[in-house]
């Protein structure tokens, strides 16, 4: 029997609250050892999907396989969860909180203590271990939450807006910790609105809107799919008419060239190189940012809905 490469398999799950279809026939997989981006506008059904995956709520239909099977008590201890709306016991000390939550994840008290100490030292929180949670700064609190969610070294980590409230230095620390967990083989599902973080960290993404899958797959492919048929060039000499170019815009000392349908950038590069009156210094395909893709996809859907309404 071969072992599945998926840490999470979601098949056609749906959830309806009263008359609102929060999640609608959603399917996707998260591989072991990858950072997977779960994207979507507010109210798209991300949190409901996460809660169904975590077995906090039951789907009305569909199946979820977590770490190779249905959710059990033992599986729960192999999952780390950092919810978007965070909170810890205000009246407990930092170390006390971590020991308690670590033991709830089936760590022995000794192991929980050792792990908590290692994490707190790494995140420069060790000196604050005896402070009550209410006395911690927002950044410290965020890091403490992260430790609480991951100190049991889970195989599936679900993080909702992991960088909110963190300064760039602390965001970098958390990012490195996530990379380390991924390298260890853990699957990480990250829900965030910070598209640059997704572009930097995620191999694959799922974009949902109104509970349905809108985009799904490797990030590179999605970006290629949405790439505009345009290139930017810096050159010496004056550019006149170029075959295959529909429109030419002078921009920041260079040019942006919008290609005619069916013309590939490689063809254009060959044409430009063969033009004796110019020397090409930079040639770059214009990539569409994830932010733009997000706005384009979600915005298009909104526009369609408004049009049909």
């Amino acid at each position: 029997m071969t072992q599945s490469t998926y840490a999470l398999e979601v098949h056609d799950i749906s959830k309806t609250y009263a008359t609102v279809r929060a999640v609608d026939n959603l399917s996707f997989e998260v591989h072991k050892g990858e950072i997977f981006g779960l994207l979507g506008p507010n109210g798209a059904g991300k949190t409901t999907s996460i809660r169904m995956i975590l077995d906090i709520i039951k789907p009305d239909a569909g199946q979820i396989s977590v770490l190779g099977g249905p959710m059990t008590e033992a599986t729960k201890s192999r999952i780390g969860y950092l919810p978007e709306e965070r909170g810890l016991y205000e009246d407990m000390t930092l170390l006390g909180t971590l020991l308690f939550l670590g033991q709830l994840k089936d760590l022995t008290r000794q192991t929980a203590r050792a792990r908590a100490e290692a994490y707190l030292r790494e995140l420069e929180l060790w000196d604050a271990r005896d402070l009550k949670i209410e006395a911690l700064s927002r950044g410290m609190n965020q890091k403490a939450q992260f430790v609480a969610a991951t100190m049991h070294e889970p195989d599936l980590i679900i993080v909702d807006e992991p960088f909110s409230g963190l300064d760039p230095v602390n965001a970098r620390i958390i990012k490195n910790l996530l990379y380390r967990m991924r390298d260890r083989g853990a699957a990480i599902m990250m829900s965030t609105h910070q598209m640059h973080q997704v572009e930097e960290m995620c191999q694959r993404i799922l974009l949902i809107d109104h509970g349905s899958r809108v985009l799904y797959g490797p990030l590179d492919e999605i970006r290629r799919q949405f790439a505009s048929n345009a290139v930017e060039v810096d050159l010496r000499g004056k550019l006149g008419h170029v075959p295959g170019v529909e429109r030419l815009v002078s921009r920041n000392g260079g040019y942006r060239l919008l290609l005619q349908d069916g013309v590939q950038p490689e063809q254009l590069l060959r044409t430009l190189v063969n033009m004796p009156e110019i020397t090409v210094e930079r040639f770059e395909r214009v990539e569409t940012s994830l932010d733009e893709i997000f706005v384009r996809v979600v915005g298009r859907k909104v526009a369609n809905e408004e049009g049909t309404a």
């Binding site: 975590l54 906090i56 729960k76 909170g87 810890l88 709830l104 994840k105 609480a148």
Partner: peptide, 15 residues
């Protein structure tokens, strides 16, 4: 307190 401080969601993932 557990509900208003949102600890509840963390607890419910563990038990």
């Amino acid at each position: 307190q557990e509900k208003s401080s949102r600890v509840m969601e963390i607890l419910l993932v563990s038990l």
